[in-house]
């Protein structure tokens, strides 16, 4: 793989992702397309309803795909997902508290993001120690933090009024409907920065999957690598959970599928996984927007339901394939 070929591959990937997003912009419950704008309502539907959602779906999907692939390498476990290290629980708890306090959406997202940063700090503090055992400590701390956060969410849900507790349920299922363009740009910015940091460690992650000792013998500082990957991954996961709730299975299946296609070298895997995540989530969201539409009954599925409905069977199939 030469440098030139790598860059052209990335350009192809980005173009493909842009193409999918463009198609998604023309699909929806109302028959509005870019080539057929008839009224001011159509303009509003395109640029204020569909575009922010599609962009947010891209950002969140890229975040989950990229973070999922790097967490799998970090934990040396192909079954790890971006929600496993506890940051998602912290962010969801932040959302729940924001909803419980009756804040408007931008502040709920902010509360969730601040909570995820707090969780990152807490987990790093607890898991600190010698490099060899940090991985297990990170994993266990993350799992316990998640369990604790969800207990807190349930507690919050139990004490607040029933209408607002429904909003918490929406956060836990994951949806992209609350997006506005400004928040979307913020999430996009954080995700791009995080993914660039992850990409810069692609070679180190390759070595890391062969064990801490091998990585160290190739000049990689294991403790620093773990910290960086955890921080960058958690940052993008925290931002995406804050904006869209817990959208399951994207960060699990997409890296897996990407591994089947390009193997386990991270300079290829990470971009493909990130772009694949973006494409997958845009498609899932388009399905969620349009599927239950027809006649006099029209509603919308939460996108997390779609990804789980598609993702769970697909994941089981991949798992069988792996063990077979």
């Amino acid at each position: 793989m030469t440098r030139r070929r790598w860059y052209s591959l990335q350009a192809t990937l980005l173009l493909g992702m842009g193409g999918v997003a463009f198609c998604a912009l023309n699909i929806g419950p109302s028959p509005v397309t870019l080539f057929q704008i008839l009224s001011a309502t159509d303009v509003a539907i395109l640029w204020q309803a569909r575009l922010p959602r599609i962009l947010l779906a891209l950002a969140v999907g890229m975040a989950l795909g990229g973070a999922g692939a790097s967490y799998q390498a970090l934990l040396r476990n192909p079954l790890a997902d971006p929600y496993i290290l506890g940051v998602s629980g912290g962010a969801a708890l932040g959302s729940a508290i924001g909803i419980g306090a009756g804040l408007p959406f931008p502040f709920i997202a902010l509360a969730a993001f601040v909570a995820s940063l707090g969780t990152i700090g807490l987990i790093l503090m607890i898991a600190r120690g010698d490099a060899v055992h940090t991985t297990y400590r990170l994993l266990l701390t993350g799992v316990v933090c998640n369990a604790f956060a969800f207990a807190c969410i349930m507690a919050v849900q139990a004490v607040i009024p029933i209408e607002r507790s429904h909003e918490i349920l929406v956060v836990l299922m994951g949806n992209l409907t609350l997006a506005d363009l400004q928040i979307t740009w913020w999430v996009f910015g954080i995700v791009i920065v995080g993914l660039i940091i992850l990409m810069r460690h692609a070679r180190a992650l390759d070595a890391w999957t062969l064990g801490a000792e091998t990585a160290a013998s190739l000049g990689i500082d294991p403790a620093r690598l773990q910290r960086t990957i955890f921080l960058a991954g958690s940052l993008v996961v925290g931002a995406s959970v804050a904006a869209s709730g817990l959208i399951g299975f994207v960060g699990l299946i997409v890296p897996h599928a990407a591994r089947l296609i390009v193997g386990h070298r991270h300079h290829l895997l990470l971009p493909l996984s990130a772009c694949g995540g973006g494409v997958f989530l845009v498609v899932a969201d388009t399905v969620a927007r349009s599927a239950l539409h027809g006649g006099d009954y029209t509603t919308e599925l939460p996108v997390g339901v779609v990804t789980a409905l598609v993702g769970a069977p697909l994941f089981l199939w991949l798992l069988r394939k792996r063990t077979a």
């Binding site: 030469t2 440098r3 790598w6 070679r203 390759d206 070595a207 190739l218 000049g219 990689i220 300079h267």
Partner: peptide, 10 residues
């Protein structure tokens, strides 16, 4: 890896 400067290309 110790000699590479880019993202992993050889």
């Amino acid at each position: 890896v110790p000699f590479q400067t880019g993202l992993g290309w050889l």
